[in-house]
Amino acid sequence: MDPLAQYDTVIVGGGPAGLTAALALTRYRHRALVAESPAPPRNRASRGVHGMIGLEGATPAQVRARAWAELDGYGLAERRDVTVEDVTRAEGGGFHVSLGDGATAWSRTVLLTTGVIDVHPAGVEGFAECWGRTVIHCPFCLGWENAERTWGLVADDPEHAAMAAAGFGAWSADVIAIAAPGMARAAETRRTLRAAGSDLVEGEIVRLHHRDGDLHTVEMSDGTLVERQTLLWSPPQRQVPLVTRLTRSLGLALDDGFVAVGTDQQTSVPGLYAAGDLTTRWEQGAVNAAGAGATAADALHFAHGR
């Protein structure tokens, strides 16, 4: 690649948001570079994408392969399996995008679709093996696959714990809350849950007993065993290193840890856009990300004055 190669837009990340944006921009006849990290994707544990019409159950790899077959048919989007190390303002406008292989590209605009990093709990044996199968972060994503099983909602506040009583009845008739010791209003929450046919178990989870990722028992630090087949557990999330750097170097604004964007997906930095999970905690998922990518592509097209 020419170290001074020029693009209309560099898209950082090749998931649903980035690839949807690439397709829309291609059809707008923009030249785009999609830089996708060679590291395993965040959704690598998923056995299928759900909720995307025409792609129900397809694996993340199959979705990417199909997307690139479609993009390659147009010939305007370039794919590079490389990390983006930095994004800086260029003299005269636009951005310089520094790639992990030492090359630099110039683009009029940049779209961040990096996703986020799930911070898995330290010291919980079996978590990684169950993650994305029977330890799920989103009932809308994997509730169907875990229906008619016994669930545990891992909670850190009483309002969240109280959702175990009625919030997930579409998938399970047996949902309890599991909270670390010391949660505020724990006794009150337990009474409320028990009155609704649920319960609250307090304890520090140290081990998930499973068979090839199929959970059957949760073990607490005091040795207590709780029979559960599915855990609804949403771990904390953090931004990828590039986004963190841009908050310092470009003044990229965050809102409660997520990239702040307007209705057009533009960030606080003019010409820098973001779409997908890095912008929201509660509307994550392939369909939502794809929709945000399409919105960003429309805005980018009109920003370019074409």
Rank of each mutant, 00 (worst) to 15 (best):
D2A: 03
P3K: 13
Q6H: 00
P16Q: 11
A17C: 04
L25E: 08
R27V: 06
H30T: 06
A32F: 15
R42A: 07
N43H: 01
S46K: 07
I53Y: 14
I53W: 13
A61W: 14
Q62D: 15
R64K: 08
A65V: 06
A65R: 08
R89N: 00
A90R: 06
V97E: 06
S98C: 09
D101R: 02
L111T: 07
T114Q: 07
V116E: 09
I117P: 00
A122E: 12
V124I: 12
G126D: 06
C130Y: 10
V135C: 02
P139L: 08
W144F: 12
R149Q: 11
G152D: 10
G152M: 11
A161N: 01
M163L: 14
A165C: 03
W171G: 00
S172H: 14
A177Y: 01
M183Y: 10
A184G: 01
R194P: 03
A195M: 08
S198T: 04
L200D: 01
E204F: 03
H209K: 00
R211P: 01
P236V: 13
Q237K: 05
P241I: 09
V243L: 15
L246G: 03
T247R: 11
S249Y: 06
G251H: 10
L254P: 00
G257W: 13
V259T: 09
A260I: 04
D264Y: 14
Q265E: 11
T267M: 07
V269N: 06
L272C: 05
D277R: 00
L278V: 04
T280G: 05
R281E: 12
W282L: 09
V287C: 01
A290K: 01
A290G: 10
A296F: 15
D298C: 04
H301C: 04
